[in-house]
Design a binder for these strands. Structure first.
Length: 821
RNA sequence: GCGAGAGUGGCGGAACUGGCAGACGCACUAGACUUAGGAUCUAGCGCCUUUGGCGUGUGGGUUCAACUCCCACCUCUCGCACCA
């Protein structure tokens, strides 16, 4: 017989739903709270396999923790603001809200069909007023604290999405969402001051280093990009100005032969003003150069090589007082450090290339450590020498090692008041303005008289207007809604203008986990009392692609909330354990629409059901690895479940129960429990399934000669153990076995260590590493009778008598080892 | 270039603290049952010159014993990348 997964799965999903079995109270006596969180989906219309895998793993952990006796919260919601809804509105002439809510309904069905154990009573939908109101509330709190500010600066603009992007959302010069080229624009925008927290973000890895993959932490550290060095002030010849440069190699200071500044550097304007009076051609050339660099994308700058132009000005070397030419160069980033570098062509490859191209002086000031005897004769071999070494041609610093010289030189700079030790970070403030409709309105009004005026907390929410035309042309649709834009200033009552930008949707996802703890609160985004019952999240599960976006922003928000007194300090890090599941791959590529290799979860569910799908996904690869999609394997999963059900069915319907209880069944039973419980702790979900299959194979062989209740007892424990993986079929068997309560409310079986001790094991007799014989015995038995056992074997006896036994026989694990000459 | 991870059959992957490499599954082969088999069951399945030998990316080392530890190298994947 085949088990009917369609009926069984539907039946139990309905019962679980009706009994509200997954709804969790904030506290339950005698139980510890455990918060399982998965990255909530964007409601695009259909779950993709990445979601299915992510949520299958989360569901397994949630159900396992329940069986362990925890009070588990496993919530779900919808990250439902964002650009695709707006694009769909333009394309299908459907309102983003309708489109989004319809998608949510569809996807909710899919989630339910997978049998995921969500507490739907805590569901959140970020595009609804009762959520985004609190985005605005949080914005205003940050504004109060000076952590939200408006500033004109050069920002990333995506022409296709028609909005600005945060630095984190630009990948290799392209938009993270649509992959089109990102250009630079100077605009006035809202920022969150994440840089205020950069040091703390680095320090607090202390609290999560055991629970996060080092890869993710490294990615974040890299992104924050802390670097320690020295800032030097270079005076400018015949001009009462100076240029600050940042360097990590101040030991090469005597090798500076020119200065390069970014074309965007503020001093350039001064240069031009002066030059226009003295040297019109040079000024024009410089202006042309700046224009041409502006047109280059990041990629161009990389590809075209280093370009530059002499500014006409000279800097003064702080120690030698020599005149050093100041150049403008396309390879200097305006946004990093001071936007100016001291060029040491002998010891920096970029400067070297630039110097060769522009025929600038190259001066060696470092020689390799091994080159001590003739260090003065050290020569470059068509490239810069970038390693550390001994200083030469550096006056009183000659013969010092690089590290020592860095300190001494900086100390002298400090003495001369020309520089200091500095730390520089790559991280920039988080740009949160978006020129799009489908997002949280920024709660700000601009008044000619009063300037920037925040909305009063009591006046929240600033509602997103619903009747809007989506033409796809021009600016954000919000700009054209005069009711929305033209308002009275809350301060002076005069006509004022509302901010029409909305917030980056990453604002929504930076605190949603806190809302789950207190999802119905209508006076605060969340209460400290409720969040402190659940936070920090015990286990977070999601993809690694969010390392420098969502995961970094959330850490930042959490720290702000702690400082604002909104959450307890014990949750200074929001996610203590993070599991990054691998990607789902088909034909060697990540599943995606553009690759055309999508597998529709609906089809999978229809053909094989939820349990088979879950089993397949967990069995095919360990959770952190990429998973290769294989249609044949899912059939294998389905086959196994049928086999399992058939085994149960056959034993269950057997009339005769007079057979003996068997020791080997008891042993297998016990060791199966042990292995599976261990694997749950080590994320070895694929081997849990392998162990279960072994047990089932074993039972098939033994069933006809074994006591019925002993067999059913074993099957019952298997059901509990694998119910987090295949909840429906196990619940069905569990109930047939006569249990009244749901299997979800049961407890994990316990491994009996006393029983295991007495085991008979197969011992292997190994001589010089080669296996010579096997022997079946109890451990203590064999320890006493080693010689008898060995010499009972004639062949072995002769062999050993011919050789000389060198070391005493010893036993380890399942091995008797003899060392001979 | 910098940072992280990984290399084991035809494939996905097992192997706890160094202790029978290839568990479990897929694919494949043969057989059984069957009107039928794409259901199910049984057996086989790393390679070779098969009473034996060789095998965990390559080359060395430690050890009675190495996928596992040490040294050198190769390859692949991912992340970052003109960051001064």
């Amino acid at each position: 017989m085949r088990y009917n997964f369609k009926n069984i799965e539907k039946k139990w999903q309905k019962i679980w739903d009706e009994k509200k079995i997954f709804e969790v109270k904030d506290q339950e006596i005698g139980k510890k709270n455990y918060f399982v969180l998965e990255m909530f989906p964007y409601p695009s219309g259909m779950l993709h396999m990445g979601h299915v895998r992510n949520y299958t793993i989360s569901d397994l952990i949630s159900r396992y923790k329940k069986l362990q006796g925890f009070n588990v919260m496993h919530p779900i919601g919808w990250d439902s603001f964002g650009l695709p809804a707006e694009n769909a509105a333009i394309k299908y002439k459907k309102h983003p809200k309708d489109w989004t809510l319809a998608n949510i309904n569809k996807m909710k069905e899919q989630l339910k069909a997978m049998g995921f154990s969500y507490d739907w009573s805590r569901e959140i939908t970020t595009c609804l007023e009762n959520y985004y109101k609190w985005n605005q509330w949080i914005f205003l709190k940050l504004y109060e604290k000076g952590l939200a500010y408006r500033k004109e600066s050069v920002v990333n603009w995506c022409n296709k999405c028609k909005t600005v992007l945060a630095n984190e959302q630009v990948e290799n010069g392209k938009c993270w969402r649509c992959s089109s080229e990102v250009v630079q624009k100077s605009l006035e925008q809202w920022f969150f001051k994440i840089t205020e927290y950069q040091e703390q973000l680095l320090q607090d890895y202390e609290f999560i280093k055991d629970g996060w993959a080092t890869r993710i932490i490294d990615m974040q550290k890299n992104w924050i990009g802390k670097s320690e060095g020295t800032t030097i002030n270079f005076d400018i010849n015949n001009l009462d100005e100076n240029i600050k440069v940042f360097t990590t190699r101040v030991d090469t200071l005597y090798g500076v032969t020119y200065i390069v500044i970014a074309p965007e550097h503020e001093i350039v304007n001064k240069f031009i003003t002066i030059l226009l009076k003295k040297d019109n051609t040079l000024a024009k050339n410089i202006i042309d150069f700046i224009e041409s660099v502006k047109k280059q994308t990041e990629l161009d700058r990389n590809m075209k090589g280093k370009e530059g132009i002499f500014s006409g000005f000279y800097a003064i070397h702080p120690f030698t007082n020599k005149k050093i030419p100041i150049w403008l160069g396309n390879y200097v980033l305006a946004t990093y450090g001071t936007g100016a570098v001291m060029a040491v062509p002998a010891h920096d490859q970029r400067d070297y290339e630039f110097a060769i191209k522009n025929n600038l002086e190259i001066k060696i000031v470092i020689t390799p450590y091994y080159n001590d005897s003739n260090s003065k004769n050290f020569e470059l071999k068509n490239k810069a020498f970038e390693e550390k070494g001994f200083l030469v041609n550096s006056a009183e610093f000659d013969n010092l090692k690089s590290d020592e010289a860095k300190i001494k030189i900086t100390e002298k700079l400090i003495f001369l008041n020309k520089g200091n030790f500095t730390k520089t970070y790559r991280l920039k403030d988080w740009l949160i303005s978006r020129q799009r409709y489908w997002g949280t309105p920024i709660p700000i009004i601009y008044c000619k008289k009063c300037g920037i005026v925040p909305i009063k907390f009591d006046d929240l929410p600033v509602k997103l207007p619903e009747s809007v035309d989506f033409t796809g042309q021009g600016d954000s649709p919000l700009k054209y809604i005069s009711d929305f834009v033209n308002v009275k200033c809350p301060e002076c009552g005069n006509i004022a203008q509302r901010e029409t930008d909305t917030m980056d949707t990453f604002v929504d996802s930076s605190w949603y986990f806190l809302r789950y703890c207190d999802s119905k609160n209508d006076s605060m985004p969340f209460s400290k009392e409720k969040t402190s019952l659940w936070m920090p999240v015990n286990q977070y599960i999601g993809g690694a692609e969010h390392a420098c976006m969502h995961l970094l922003y959330s850490r930042f928000f959490e720290k702000v909330f702690v400082d604002l007194g909104l959450v307890d300090k014990k949750a200074i890090e929001p996610f203590t354990n993070l599991l990054n599941q691998g990607m789902v791959i088909k034909d060697g590529n990540k599943m995606s629409k553009s690759k055309g290799n999508i597998v529709d979860p609906d089809e999978m569910l229809k053909k094989y059901g939820a349990d088979s799908s879950r089993l397949f996904i967990l069995f095919a690869a360990p959770p952190h690895k990429d998973l290769e999609w294989n249609e044949d394997s899912i059939e294998g999963a389905n086959r196994f479940l049928n086999r399992f059900y058939r085994l149960f069915d056959e034993i269950f319907n057997r009339k005769d129960d007079s057979l003996e209880q068997k020791r080997n069944i008891e042993q297998m039973h016990n060791s199966t429990i042990k292995k599976i419980l261990e694997d749950y702790e080590n994320f070895g979900y694929n081997t849990i399934i392998a162990t279960t299959m072994e047990a089932i194979n074993f039972l098939y062989k033994e069933k006809d000669s074994t006591n019925k209740s002993q067999l059913l007892n074993f099957i019952s424990d298997i059901c509990i153990l694998i119910s987090p993986i295949v909840p429906h079929i196990t619940e069905e068997i569990w109930q047939k076995l006569g249990n009244k309560e749901s299997i979800i409310l049961s407890k994990l079986p316990v491994f009996d260590s006393k029983k295991a001790e007495k085991d008979k094991i197969i011992f292997v007799i190994q001589i010089n590493g080669k296996i010579r014989a096997k022997y079946d015995a109890k451990k203590d038995e064999i320890q006493e009778n080693i010689e008898k056992i060995i010499f009972a074997d004639e062949k072995l006896k002769t062999y050993l008598e011919n050789k000389k036994i060198l070391k005493k026989v010893f036993i380890k694990n399942k091995l008797i080892n003899i060392v001979v000459k």
